[in-house]
Design a protein around this nucleic acid. Structure first.
Lengths: 146, 146
DNA sequence: CTTCATGCAAAACATTTGCAGCTGG
DNA sequence: CCAGCTGCAAATGTTTTGCATGAAG
């Protein structure tokens, strides 16, 4: 995992470069996304943000996350059947392994996944811009619980 | 692509085996999912279904799709930022290539993607049950249109 | 006939938006 | 200062649900 402090600085720099304001609300959100421990949901981020800066609203959280997505400073994992999850620590596409029982999400070592975008592009004629690779299963903890 | 007539028969057999009723509404939905041309959305399926059996309601469509998902006779591609898409022709996990402009979805040849589930399982300790591999990009048609 | 399926309308959710007022730089 | 940000509340869009009616087997 990238150093959270470094990531926070990178995000702040990006905002300043593009003349976006650093508000206390945004700072509180950035701090949590820089760590992104366990790939939090909006609701989880919201809870933590309120501990840091209590008057933050959900709308602001959504707006900030949308902004960071546009700046490519946060990776959104969209799920149609539950809240989306966020990774601000590694904001580039990478595979995820998701527990279908407790919802925990971990990153496997990247080297097990070869990048086949080029093969796909050659074969389909698509100009590939992004990818999403998810594995679903049951984490070691939840296997024990059976 | 699997033969649509064969797929329809397979689905009907599965329903009968499990004592689910074959209603005209279900039959109309199954016919469309057996082809699944272009991986239709609920709205697209709904439009086609109504052409075949006009009194079908959206609720019934959703209920039927939910049933077929449980029977593993349709694959749902969930997207958090737009309607879900469905594939009843190949109802097992396989990679998809999605145009971010027009929404078209195609299946690449499966052989370009090696299955790394086992490596992932070994490395993370997760018991892997499912996977989802999506490539996003711009299809040949939409590239022309630029 | 009896049980299951349908269709309507209302509910449930996550997310987005409009806008008046506030505030960072 | 004042453009951009916040927070509230209302709107949105998709999917689910409760329940009375209808039809499959």
């Amino acid at each position: 995992m990238a150093d959270p402090k470094l990531r926070l600085d990178q995000m702040l720099t990006k905002l300043r470069e593009q003349k976006f304001r650093i508000t206390p609300q945004r700072l509180a959100i950035l701090k949590i996304l820089a760590v992104s421990d366990g790939h939090p949901s909006v609701e989880q981020i919201f809870k933590q943000v309120k501990a840091d800066f209590p008057t933050t609203s959900l709308a602001t959280l959504y707006k900030t996350v949308t902004l960071l997505k546009q700046l490519n400073e946060v990776l959104e994992l969209g799920f149609s059947d539950s809240g989306n999850r966020y990774d601000g620590n590694r904001p580039y596409p990478h595979p995820h392994v998701i527990c279908t029982v407790c919802g925990n999400i971990v990153d496997p070592e990247p080297d097990v996944v070869q990048d086949i975008s080029e093969d796909i592009a050659k074969q389909t004629g698509y100009f590939i811009t992004n990818q999403r690779i998810d594995f679903f299963g049951i984490c070691p903890e939840c296997q024990k619980g059976k």
